[in-house]
Design a binder for these strands. Structure first.
Lengths: 181, 181
DNA sequence: CACCGATCTGACCGATCGGTCAGATGCTGA
DNA sequence: TCAGCATCTGACCGATCGGTCAGATCGGTG
């Protein structure tokens, strides 16, 4: 077969994104991705070191924004920190809902992989900020339910315009989260 | 080896519950379960027709309660339906948080298996009821986020007493859900 | 005692997984 | 023209998966 295009790398990335969104990371084989691109599995592994490398490259932009949010939260205390966390996370979820959807409930296991270890810690700090650094279990519960719920579902609202989704989620967050002491 | 006990069936069920809770359904092999029980994989498959049968038997009590809740919701309209749905679901999540945790974010895929097809439909009706049968996207979004968030996280609160968890979740639900028109 | 059915096992099966490798192909620059 | 390089492939690998099967081993029963 002729060398079709030098954009195979991006084709693979796009195809992987589509497949992951449909059947999840675990539920998508390299063969599936290759079939969608129209190349061999070996070609996929020529452009990417391994399967995980595809996922990390796919998630890189979202992770960068998440890290930036983490730093912004750290620069605040109390109520402002909670507000920054809520607005920042909702914004992130809306903008990257497709990327987040790729994980389709595979967060727990995928996050335990070394490549995502720091994401785990950022998530914990995010929950703390959303809970307003409160020790009350009810505050932590509300924060965790909100975080997990948005992460799990935002990918299902592809048909809702960004701005409408952002407003709805932000209003929900304001209602759901307990005010700081 | 001698016939140790006739309770092997229950031993397998308990071991599977422990393993599923740790590594999820997909992440647990029949070999893992057999190792935990201290028997062969063939023995596991002697007591259960297949892997899915273990899961369905493990989930049976929770599913029965979910179906009962579905019928109770159907007997109401408007605000009472929403209240019954919220209280019923929170109660279910608290009581069966361990069983729900087994699925560890594998809901989407597992629910697509034929054995769980009707659960899918019940979930949809539950979301509708929580949204107060409203057409507003924001109402549906709030209901879905709450449902998914509680399902995903309730298994993490094993250390929180039932009554405290129920109160916190119910208060959260009341704040998060939009009132019916 | 002989027999039977429940229980349990090791060996095995086909399928699929992520990943490797030697080599084919075609473009490019000297 | 031709060497060199990037690209791509089929064939193959070891591991693991869920599941099957013939047969071993027991307790209870007549």
């Amino acid at each position: 077969m002729a060398r079709v295009v030098p954009e195979t790398h991006d084709d693979i990335l796009a195809a992987a994104g589509r497949r992951f969104a449909l059947t999840g990371y675990r539920g998508t084989s390299l063969q599936d991705i290759a079939r969608e691109v129209g190349c061999s599995k070996a070609t996929v592994l020529y452009h990417f070191a391994n399967k995980e490398a595809i996922l990390t490259e796919l998630m890189a932009p979202a992770i960068a924004v998440l890290q930036a949010l983490d730093e912004r939260i750290a620069a605040h205390r109390g109520a402002p920190a909670q507000r920054v966390a809520a607005e920042g996370f909702v914004d992130l979820a809306v903008r990257f809902r497709r990327e987040i959807a790729l994980l389709r409930g595979e967060f727990p296991e995928l996050l335990q992989q070394p490549a995502f270890a720091h994401i785990q810690r950022i998530s914990e700090r995010l929950v703390e900020a959303l809970a307003g650094q409160s020790e009350r279990p009810s505050a932590r519960i509300a924060a965790l339910v909100l975080l997990a719920g948005i992460s799990e579902t935002c990918g299902q609202f592809v048909d809702v315009p960004d701005e409408e989704l952002r407003c709805a989620l932000l209003a929900l967050a304001r209602r759901a989260l307990e005010p700081v002491d």
